[in-house]
Design a protein around this nucleic acid. Structure first.
Length: 591
DNA sequence: AGCACGCCGACT
DNA sequence: GTCGGCGTGCTC
């Protein structure tokens, strides 16, 4: 019995499509959302292909979710690419990039997405200069072409939508409005739309402009589908449809800087502008019974006399060890990341290769006897400042206090121009985060603070590494110096952007199960060409205490292709007894 | 014999 | 992800 057959993918971890008969009363196209029976109940899926064939024994599509396709052919292909790149299923990827389903009986004006021809466009642009946000607002006001602006989170999307007087596509607004904005953009009726990653594939009539705010922000890759960095999806989208793409960040990811050097992205080096004085306060050899060094104490004194605010940035619990004498951090000799301290087990272990070591007696560098793991918590800093400056208002929550204490996120909440000095109580806490991106993150936070306080302000960095290249680059307002050093480190030890990473992890409520499973995964991957598997070492039964196991995999740029076949059984059947497998391509964090 | 639970494969 | 089939093993 021949008839029209639709291939449909669903939000399940299976990559394969399911075939259904298209009944005569229903008309469907590729890229259309439909309801179809799966395991006896109706579920929403995406039509990825249509063909004529023998429909004997096939179940029928029940209905369409909307009367028109919601993805263009190009967008649908893009979801497939994202799924393949991230080792996730086509269905879960595609369905995560769509607006909510319509409310029952809602009246809507819908149109199919524009089917643009692939066009050769200009290369993406990296905007790093100060006042890049103002420049963007100006550009969007001048430019007549439709624009999609992607923000790292809902709050940022809301702010930008207000600033640009644009429709919102993020999940911070009611589903009806999101849908309306999606289809308005699709029909060319909303010139500027603002959203988060769920809005990445919003159709726009060409020639369109795509904008990524805070390109470096790891919030652009939260857990869950679509499991690829928003930057990478936009780069691909822009290339496929020939759209102009703007990446905004004062401190771009090393990946994007590298692409700029490789001429895949256009970047102009901004002229140096007004810049604060960046002072380092060396804490080596200083007995640290107080969180404030003399330079920072003086700055608080002086600034408060002049009626200016001081922000003190603290670092949350650093789980690594550093020598009090020479300042060196205990690092894995093979992987270069700080060794993570487990106080309970009194061991140090590497987050990348899983190498474990007992706590050393002294510093391997200088033989010093004091190795200190402690950072300064917000409470301790707040109390210490109060004691020293009883007349000043000191707060962790009031952004108007004379002295405000908080983590790096605090900097974003303070009004521009109000802060005269930012003091980093323990920047080493950032540098010794057991993650290869620790330096990049420290650089980003310091640079942001410097931009924030501006030319009349001051930055004071308390550190045992006053010569660290991240601090030096911020002091000199010299981005290139930072990236040069950082890329050398990444190249030497084989980290992104030179090699790609994948993390396979297992969990089990019962001891031993997770270990057996991660061992099984690692076994399948060993011996692949140009692929290194770290960790997942089978340990003696005595060491079996944790419920979580992890293997870090390093490989060439086509790592997802290499891992697809051997990991397929684990990706498609994540639960093995009480143990669960998770696979994360291109992790934004290893801690 | 009858039922609970957990493992495992199938899902069009 | 979610469902149900079926085997193991316990209970009435």
């Amino acid at each position: 019995m021949n008839g029209p057959i639709a291939e449909v993918v669903f939000d399940i971890p299976l990559h394969r499509a399911f075939a259904y008969l298209v009944p005569p009363a229903v008309s469907v196209a590729r890229g259309q959302r439909v309801r179809a029976p799966l395991q006896g109940r109706a579920r929403v899926g995406m039509v990825v292909d249509l063909r004529e064939g023998d429909a004997t024994g096939l179940l029928a599509i029940q209905s369409v979710s909307e009367p028109v396709p919601i993805f263009s052919r190009a967008a649908l292909e893009l979801t497939r690419w994202v799924a393949d790149e991230s080792l996730s299923s086509w269905g879960s990827t595609a369905l995560a990039l769509l607006p909510p389903l319509p409310a029952r009986g809602a009246a809507e004006t819908l149109a199919p997405p524009p089917e643009g021809r692939p066009a050769a466009g200009a290369p993406p642009e990296l905007w790093m200069a100060a006042r890049r946000a103002d420049r963007l607002v100006d550009l969007l006001a001048r430019e007549p072409s439709p624009a999609l602006v992607i923000a790292p989170d809902i709050e940022s999307a809301a702010r930008w939508a207000r600033r640009l007087d644009a429709a919102r596509l993020d999940s911070g607004i009611p589903g009806v409005e999101r849908r309306a904005a999606w289809f308005a953009a699709s029909r060319g009726r909303a010139r500027i739309v603002v959203g988060t990653r769920s809005a990445l594939l919003t159709p726009l009539p060409p020639p369109a402009m795509l904008v990524l705010l805070d390109e470096h922000d790891t919030a652009h890759k939260p857990p869950g589908a679509p499991r690829l960095h928003t930057r990478d999806v936009l780069l691909r989208r822009a290339a496929l449809e020939g759209s102009r793409l703007l990446l905004l960040s004062a401190t771009p990811s090393v990946e994007s800087w590298w692409r700029a050097e490789d001429r895949q992205i256009r970047a102009s080096q901004p002229e140096p502008g007004p810049w604060p004085e960046v002072l380092t306060a060396d804490t080596r050899g200083v007995l640290r019974n107080h969180p404030l060094t003399l330079p920072l104490t003086r700055a608080i004194e002086e600034l408060s006399r002049r009626g200016r605010q001081v922000a003190l940035v603290i670092t949350r619990g650093a789980a690594a060890l550093a020598c009090d004498e020479c300042g060196s951090v205990l690092r894995c000799p093979e992987c270069g990341v700080a060794l993570a301290l487990s106080r309970a087990e009194r061991t140090l272990s590497c987050r990348v290769c899983a190498r474990g070591e007992p706590l050393p007696e002294g510093c391997p560098c200088c033989g010093g006897h004091r190795l200190s793991p402690l950072g300064w918590g917000a409470e301790r800093v707040e109390a210490a400042v109060r004691r020293r400056f009883p007349r000043l208002s000191v707060s962790r929550s009031d952004p108007g206090a004379n002295v405000v204490v908080g983590t790096a996120a605090l900097l974003g909440r303070l009004g521009p121009g109000s802060v005269g000095c930012v003091g980093f109580v323990d920047v080493d806490g950032l540098l010794r985060v057991p993650d290869f991106r620790a330096g990049e993150r420290a650089f980003e936070i310091l640079w942001t603070a410097a931009e924030r306080v501006g030319g009349a302000g001051r930055i004071i960095v308390q550190t045992r590494h006053p010569q660290h290249y991240a601090i030096r680059a911020v002091r000199e307002q010299d981005r290139a110096a930072f990236y040069k050093n950082e890329m050398r480190f990444r190249a030497e030890l084989g980290y992104p952007p030179f090699r790609r990473l994948c993390v396979v992890s297992t969990r089990d409520v019962r001891p031993g199960g997770g270990q057996a499973l991660i061992g099984e995964c690692a076994e399948r991957l060993r011996g692949l060409p140009d692929v290194t598997v770290y960790g997942a070492v089978r340990q003696s039964p005595a060491a079996v205490a944790r419920a979580r196991w992890r293997a870090v995999i390093k490989g060439p740029p086509d790592l997802p292709r290499l891992l697809d076949a051997p990991l397929r059984p684990f990706l498609e059947r994540r639960r093995r007894g009480s143990a669960v497998v998770e696979v994360e391509m291109d992790p934004v964090s290893l801690s």
